[in-house]
């Protein structure tokens, strides 16, 4: 049994919140640069070039890429041989979020109750998912999820007879309805299968993949490519103002499902696809 102190978790989460908000991954930056070269509409280029400048300025000045520094979604993979000492893991993570959002001058965007809507003032609580895994390490990934894109996400319980055509139609309808709202160019996390909540969970996890990296299953990877081309043919473009780059990548994850069902969840992610991981 390996012991990890709760304070170590808090410190790691604090740094991850700040790093994720200010330092966009090279993978996403590369896809935006490639998109700027491919884009032919001048006003779409104007926007993509601003995004590239923005990423560099944010990194240099340690300033958040986007003022919506999100609700903190935290994925934990906890080795079953790990024992947390000195506190409860969920409290330790929330303490890290509280201190990261305060020390990092990040925007506090969380309200305590969805009806009364009083800002909690420290961006807690975080949305925390803990999975048990073999081994004795603890992996923590912080995803600051902005709501411009989160609000454009969708879930549908398709019927098995709807099949692949039903999935494609649902994805394209969702992207069309979202238009410029989710800050395109977007990355789509799509979860297919499982149950209602499992589909949504794997859709969000799909966003953690290196941007543009295909699903290891060839037929899923080819569906990702097919959807990417179809989405970019819609002409929504950067910020919904026209152009050929509406999506940077489509990431699909699948899971076994019931004979009677075909759940499909689409988690929309803006171009500021932020996430940072620490392994303790």
């Amino acid at each position: 049994m390996r012991e990890i102190d709760a304070k170590t978790i808090t410190d790691a989460v604090e740094s991850l919140c700040i790093d994720a908000a200010c330092d966009l991954g090279q993978d996403v930056e590369q896809l935006i640069s490639d998109a700027a070269k491919k884009e032919s509409l001048p006003r779409a280029q104007y926007i993509l070039n601003q995004l590239i400048d923005n990423i560099k300025l944010a990194r240099e000045q340690q300033m958040p890429i986007c003022q919506d520094t999100g609700m903190a979604v935290v994925f934990v993979e906890m080795g079953q041989d790990v024992h947390i000492t000195g506190g409860y893991i969920i409290d330790a993570i929330n303490e890290g979020v509280r201190s990261g959002y305060t020390k990092g001058y990040l925007r506090k965007s969380v309200v305590s109750n969805p009806i009364e809507r009083i800002n909690t003032g420290d961006n807690t609580p975080a949305i925390i998912h803990v999975e048990m895994v073999p081994g004795s390490s603890l992996s923590i990934t912080v995803v600051p999820k902005g709501f411009g894109s989160e609000n454009m996400s969708a879930l549908k319980m398709l019927k098995p007879a709807d099949g692949i055509d039903g999935i494609k139609a649902f994805v394209l309808d969702t992207v069309k309805a979202a238009g410029g709202n989710p800050c395109p160019p977007v990355i789509l996390g799509i979860g297919i299968g499982g149950t209602m909540e499992k589909a949504a969970y794997i859709a969000k996890k799909a966003l953690l993949r290196d941007a543009g990296q295909p699903n290891p299953n060839e037929s899923v990877a080819s569906l990702e490519q097919e959807l990417l081309h179809a989405i970019n043919a819609l002409g929504i473009g950067p910020q919904g103002l026209g152009g050929t780059v509406t999506a940077l990548a489509v990431h699909i994850e699948t899971f076994a499902t019931h004979i009677a069902g075909l759940p499909v969840a689409i988690n929309m992610q803006c171009h500021a696809s932020r996430h940072k991981t620490a392994v303790l």
Partner: peptide, 30 residues
């Protein structure tokens, strides 16, 4: 701002001669 506006907003913009400009969403540091 960012993103589309409703028909009612556009009608009022025409009536009162106003303009809507899009800033780049997510270019917060810039």
């Amino acid at each position: 701002g960012k993103g589309p506006r409703s028909r009612a907003v556009i009608d009022a913009m025409v009536k009162y001669k106003a303009v809507y400009l899009a800033a780049t969403g997510g270019a917060g540091a810039l």
